[in-house]
Design a protein around this nucleic acid. Structure first.
Length: 798
RNA sequence: GGGCGUGUGGUGAAAUUGGUAUACACGUCGGCUUUAGGAGCCGAUGCCGCAAGGCGUGUGGGUUCGAGUCCCACCUCGCCCACCA
């Protein structure tokens, strides 16, 4: 900095004050016209603070925020904190403190760090999910689900993390392990609240089609919803046994069934198991329950564990007796928790049959793999009246026949499960439900919201919610409702908190309602939503569900059913190939970089490092290139001439054309490259104030401080962000163009020529060049491809 | 096993969408400047070769006057889902 003798930090402070006084980013939600809602996924305020990887997404969203300001939009660009959750609670346990204290401190640190980015956040609209003024409305939201029959309390076998001592949603179990702490998840029987997201699975699936989201994210969601069309088939119970319904996508293999298999947890098992086998079954059930999800999902295991019930069902077509088994490869919570086993045409059924000596009947032939034929590939055999049909024909015919006989029907199932929202932890919004002395659940009335978290609680996990141990919580319920009444002592999954925060930004302090429908109708959908790929399924699916629920039940009535129109997933920043994390000790702090190079240089480098959706390896020296570029840009101020050269003007127009396209395509790394190239051009060509000003506007979304500073030095009183995105300049037509002369498709040299020249003239001119003569010596020209509009002439020889 | 994606210099990467491959940077090398340190400035830098020249976008084919780009097959690495009937 000796050379530049420029104090970034002082200047940044000065510009920050200027922007503050101009109320650049504080917008009036109600009166705004021409809105643009630019949203970052709000952070969890951890204790460890922001590193350069976190910056990347925030800078991208700020780039577009400022770019849209220059397009004349009123931009809402808010920031908030997803501040309920386990880490604060665990930190409090560790430090014998309170999660609130920890959280408040972390928010303070985070806010200060976020301000260093220089982003145009509207700090008057901060949302904090652990604030009673926010979670009061999270509780209200839960009660709306309850009111419309979308919240149900169910007793079921749930995912249980033994370390965090809480249940987990399906989505929070990753490879059989707790998403948070990595502990192997076990099962536990508990009564829990569910939001019935499966009721609108189809809407959530089809709604994806209209969204401007990365295709792979849509694919992830589609796979997660997992729509599957098939047939449900009824196997009548023998004698007094109840019927068993199975779901299959391959009803064409119905004549190859050698067993019907129930999931161990299926309630029918206890009816089907005959007395002789009961003790063996109970032992089997204990073994199965003790297994972790990982153990159970061992596809490659040579033998499938199972037990014969001793009972039979009736085949719906042949009337034959089919043995009923129980096996843990059948899932209790998918389809009907029962399958028809066709060993000849399903790998799992095949392993099961082999292990237990069941009949293997081939019913499809002609496929290239006799074990796993695909639709349309084979024809049916051993299937009496269905023989010689293709699989597709057989599926249609057999489904129709079963329906006629009332033994089946076409059916669609989804892999998606209902959303388990109860958590046995302290630091979350209490489930707003109260139980009467008979244990019946009642919604808490609006006038009693929020149900505040009790404070007389230790946070040590103990298998049930720590809140259970609060005296005050018990007394509060009795005071409000009478003796023997108890509040629900669980808290809501924090994904409930984050499923609606983007609505609250519009009216963060409204004490009368969760959100203002008029303003939501005006500002939603979010125009641009930026965050990490890790939220591709959970958060984005839940938020879509919640928003759609609100629309379907007329809380919001603008007809738009999706909250996030355009989504961008920012790529991770790595160091030595690994994700930055405090525990790995490979975190790059922005602080020394800001101090040495300034905020603009760091912003510029974060954008320049590579395509923003891709992972990027942090190069500690890379920032100096951007820094040098900014020094050069800064010095342009001293090089202004009264008039611009044609070359500078043309270069600006080319630059602008490229940059406009790149911004539309979210290719910001090349926007910075183009700016560097253009500055290199200005260094050696005369330019005037007009060119420089236009250039500064285009650079300002990436590097706002230096551009605002130079803008002021050029005599402007208003902020550069009140200017308009530039148009191209008037230029005179070039009288000469530079052509690439190629011989046999290979570039040999450049040739300056008249753009109006015809092929013969150009060839004559080219032949005068010694280098071309050399290449053509002794060869016969067989073709000349003349494309002046593409700036080349190609001479093809024999 | 299924799905998606990737492959270009020493490194991060560009390539007007089929038309001058490696722009823009980092690094490296040489020179200048500086009391020193750092920083700065100028030049060079795909590979082989003294050179002439040749070869070059994972591999092999194809289409085309022309392929990093389109088609086919294969290889590599990565990510996600994974007993979903």
């Amino acid at each position: 900095m000796a050379r530049r003798n420029f104090d970034h930090q002082k200047n940044e402070e000065r510009i920050n004050k200027f922007w503050g006084s101009q109320k650049l980013s504080e917008i009036d939600i109600a009166s705004a016209k021409n809105k643009y809602y630019c949203l970052d996924m709000f952070p969890y305020p951890s204790g460890s603070g922001l590193h350069v990887g976190h910056w990347r997404g925030y800078i991208l969203s700020d780039f577009y925020t400022r770019y849209q300001m220059l397009q004349g939009k009123t931009v809402l660009h808010p920031m908030g904190f997803d501040s309920f959750g386990l880490p604060a609670e665990n930190a409090a346990i560790k430090n014998k403190s309170h999660p609130k204290k920890f959280t408040d401190q972390a928010i303070k640190t985070f806010s200060a760090q976020l301000k260093q980015i220089g982003a145009a956040y509207d700090w008057t609209k901060v949302v904090t999910t652990s604030d009673p003024n926010y979670y009061r409305w999270t509780q209200w939201l839960f009660l709306q689900f309850y009111k419309h029959g979308y919240a149900e309390k169910r007793q079921s076998l749930v995912n249980w993390c033994p370390k965090d001592q809480t249940v987990l949603a399906n989505e929070q179990v990753v490879n059989g392990k707790c998403e948070r702490c990595g502990t192997v998840v076990t099962k536990k029987e508990l009564a829990q609240w569910y939001l019935t997201i499966t009721k609108i699975a189809e809407e959530l699936l089809t709604g994806l089609d209209e969204l401007d989201w990365p295709e792979h994210v849509k694919t992830l969601q589609r796979n997660w919803i997992g729509k599957s069309t098939g047939t449900s088939v009824v196997f009548k119970g023998k004698e007094n046994l109840p019927d068993i319904e199975v779901f299959t996508t391959r009803v064409d293999t119905l004549m190859g069934v050698s067993a019907v298999v129930l999931a161990p947890e299926n309630p029918l098992t206890s009816i089907y198991i005959i007395n002789d086998i009961k003790p063996a079954f109970e032992k089997y059930l204990r073994e199965v329950t003790a297994k972790t999800n990982i153990d159970r999902a061992q596809t490659k295991e040579s033998s499938k564990t199972a037990i014969f019930t001793g009972s039979y069902v009736i085949h719906p077509v042949t009337g034959e007796e089919i043995p009923v088994w129980v096996a843990d490869y059948v899932l209790s919570d998918y389809g009907s928790g029962a399958v028809m086993s066709v060993p000849a045409h399903d790998e799992r059924d095949y392993l099961f049959a082999k292990a237990h000596n069941l009949e293997i009947i081939e019913v499809i032939r002609g496929a290239n793999d006799s074990k796993l034929p695909f639709l349309d590939e084979g024809k049916l055999v051993n299937s009496s009246q269905y023989d010689s049909l293709t699989s597709a024909q057989a599926i249609e015919q057999m489904t129709a026949d079963l329906a006629k006989a009332h033994l089946g029907q076409a059916k669609t199932t989804y892999r998606l499960r209902d959303w388990l929202v109860s958590r046995q932890r302290y630091w979350g919004a209490p489930v707003p439900v109260v139980y009467d002395p008979d244990g019946r659940a009642h919604a808490i009335e609006d006038k009693h919201l929020p149900v505040l978290l009790p404070t007389d609680v230790d946070f040590l996990p103990g298998g049930e919610s720590p809140i259970t141990r609060s005296r005050e919580f018990v007394e509060r319920a009795e005071k409000l409702y009478g003796k023997g009444w108890r509040f629900d002592t669980d808290t809501l999954d924090t994904f409930v908190d984050s499923s609606w925060y983007y609505l609250r930004y519009l009216t963060p302090n409204d004490a009368q309602q969760a959100f203002d429908p008029k303003l939501v109708e005006k500002w939603l959908p979010v125009d641009f939503y930026i965050g990490g790929i890790e939220h591709a399924i959970l958060h984005l699916l839940y938020a879509r569900f919640v928003y759609r629920f609100l629309v379907n039940h007329k809380y919001i009535t603008n007809g738009n059913k999706e909250p996030f129109q355009k989504l961008f997933n920012i790529g991770m920043v790595t160091l030595n190939g690994a994700k930055m994390s405090k525990s790995k000790g490979n975190v790059v702090s922005p602080d020394p970089l800001i101090e040495h190079y300034g905020t603009d240089a760091l912003r510029g480098y974060e954008l320049f490092i590579g395509p923003l959706e891709a992972e990027a390896e942090w190069n500690p020296r890379g920032i100096s290139g951007v820094y040098r570029f900014l020094i050069k840009a800064n010095e342009l101020l001293n090089k202004i001439k009264p008039a611009s050269s044609a070359k500078a003007k043309q270069a600006f127009n080319d630059y602008l054309t490229h940059v406009n396209e790149m911004i539309a395509d979210l290719r910001i790394n090349t926007v910075i490259s183009e700016a560097m190239k253009f500055v290199n051009v200005l260094e050696v060509n005369d330019f005037d104030t007009e060119v420089l000003e236009r250039f500064l506007i285009t650079l300002s979304p990436a590097c706002p401080y230096i551009c605002e500073t130079l803008w002021q030095e050029l005599g402007h009183k208003e902020s550069i962000f009140t200017a308009s995105w530039p148009e191209s300049l008037e230029t005179t037509k070039e009288t000469k163009i530079s052509l690439s002369i190629r011989v046999n498709h290979r570039h040999v040299q450049e040739l300056v020529c008249d753009p109006a020249a015809n092929a013969d003239e150009l060839l004559k001119q080219a032949k005068n060049e010694p280098k071309i003569q050399e290449k053509l010596r002794g060869k016969k020209i067989v073709q000349v491809i003349n494309k002046p509009e593409l700036c080349f002439i190609d001479i093809v020889t024999d």
